[in-house]
Amino acid sequence: MNTINVIDVIVEYFSQQFMTHLLWAMLALVVVFIIGVIKGPSIWDRLLSMSMVSLKVIVVIVVLAYISDTAYLLDLAIIYALFGFISEIFIALFVADRAKEDSAREGRK
């Protein structure tokens, strides 16, 4: 009798409140990686943490779309994935080019 109650509680939790708790956990992880963006000593650490923040935002949008059961929010996630990754690639290439120009101007030691 007691074990049946425990199973019922677990099934109830996983079917009702679990996705809301997952949403809060993902938002907390976004905050953690934003602390990584602020704290990182070089620009490459900041860029790495920023790519992880964009990935967490995609997961947050997917969980929101699951909770409200609206499939068109996933279009937003797809667009966010494409634009986030493309912008990170071009920021990385831009900073690398600028660093190469600076080292060429100063001369090799």
């Binding site: 490459w44 990754f85 690639i89 990385a92 290439l93 900073v95 690398a96 660093a99």
Partner: peptide
């Protein structure tokens, strides 16, 4: 792909 490009850009700069 993004991880590879960030690491390669950091190494080359």
């Amino acid at each position: 792909l993004v991880s590879h490009i960030i690491t390669k850009a950091a190494y080359e700069s």
